[in-house]
């Protein structure tokens, strides 16, 4: 087990989802994972892949080269960043001529990609480096009676040739992590489907329809919350839930929690410490249920 990681924040988390960063740092500290800050970083490259594959390769390789100087493996909270850094690391390691081409660009900034660091998304780190047993052992207030649903997000596991820790067609990692907190993770229709976030700005109509589909399937199984591990999925559901309710004249009222927020509650951290106040769809009902449940036990 490795317990020291270079944290790569990416752009979306510090821009719009500080609650994810705050709760992740708190939970990882409790699990004994030491985080070292990147000395500098730039966009991972993913947003530029559609318009310029070469730009994506250069930006990702630049980040990897910066991490190599620190001699530490990378942890990301964003699946897009993790997927991109993993993929480019493999592509450049497998193809010497591509590596040479990209390194000629990095040289302009005095950098060189050597291919010596590994990147993990927080989900992979929790599964492989911490382990389900240790997470279970960290729980002091089991979330018994809480029924939630999970949304992995596409880039956590796709395309599958770059990931080997879970099956994208039937992912289990997040489910088992949720169950480790004592909560029940419900199955629902089309669980592995896209949230729609990448279509925002290109076609908001399609993006909202995709998110609505997911929310309605989650509501059908009476999940009390949806658990995400991606800043974009979180924005898509949490920020847009009200808009979706208005657009389609429906009511969901499903709070969207980052997995570290859920785990943090089970570890005994307070909703304030876990930045629950930042959520657009408030999670009062859950908090109330958990506090009442705890009182009953006492």
């Amino acid at each position: 087990m490795t317990n020291k990681y270079l944290i790569f924040l990416g752009c979306a988390v510090p821009y719009r989802v500080l609650s994810y960063e705050i709760s992740s740092r708190k939970v990882l500290a409790k699990l004994g994972i030491e985080l070292v800050e990147m000395p500098e970083f730039n966009c991972c490259g993913l947003p530029f892949d559609p318009v310029s594959h070469e730009t994506m390769l250069i930006l990702a390789a630049k980040n990897l080269a910066l991490a190599e100087q620190e001699g530490l493996n990378i942890l990301t909270l964003c699946p897009g960043c993790a997927g991109t850094l993993k993929k480019v690391n493999k592509m450049l390691n497998d193809d010497p001529s591509l590596r040479e081409q990209i390194n000629s660009h990095l040289k302009e900034a005095g950098l060189e990609f050597k291919g010596s660091v590994e990147t993990k998304h927080i989900l992979q780190l929790l599964r492989e480096d911490v382990g389900f047993d240790k997470i279970k052992a960290s729980v002091v207030k089991p979330l018994t009676n809480l029924k939630v649903a999970e949304h992995n997000g596409c880039h956590v596991l796709r395309p599958k040739k770059y990931f080997d820790y879970d099956d994208p067609e039937d992912p289990q990692t997040l489910k088992r992590l949720i169950e480790a907190t004592g909560a029940t993770c419900l199955d629902y229709m089309d669980e592995t489907e896209c949230c729609g976030a990448p279509s925002v700005g290109v076609s908001d109509k399609i993006a909202l329809q995709l998110a609505r589909d997911k929310l309605s399937h989650i509501k059908m199984v009476n999940a009390q919350a949806l658990i995400t591990v991606c800043p974009f999925c979180h924005i898509m559901y949490d920020t847009n839930e009200l808009r979706i309710e208005k657009t389609f004249n429906e009511v969901y009222g499903i709070p969207i929690l980052h997995y570290p927020q859920l785990l943090g509650l089970a570890m005994g951290l307070t909703p304030e410490e876990l930045a629950f106040g930042d959520l657009r769809v408030k999670a009062q009902n859950i908090i109330q249920q958990l506090t009442q449940g705890a009182n009953k036990c006492e």
Partner: peptide
């Protein structure tokens, strides 16, 4: 938002270094 990090107990956001980004993107068609 970048400045708010401190009051939230978060470490400062690492610099994006746009100058170096531009250097590495020299010659990219896009």
């Amino acid at each position: 938002r970048i400045n708010k990090r401190e009051s939230l107990g978060l470490p400062p956001l690492p610099k994006g270094n746009p100058e170096n980004v531009k250097k590495t993107l020299k010659g990219v068609k896009f």
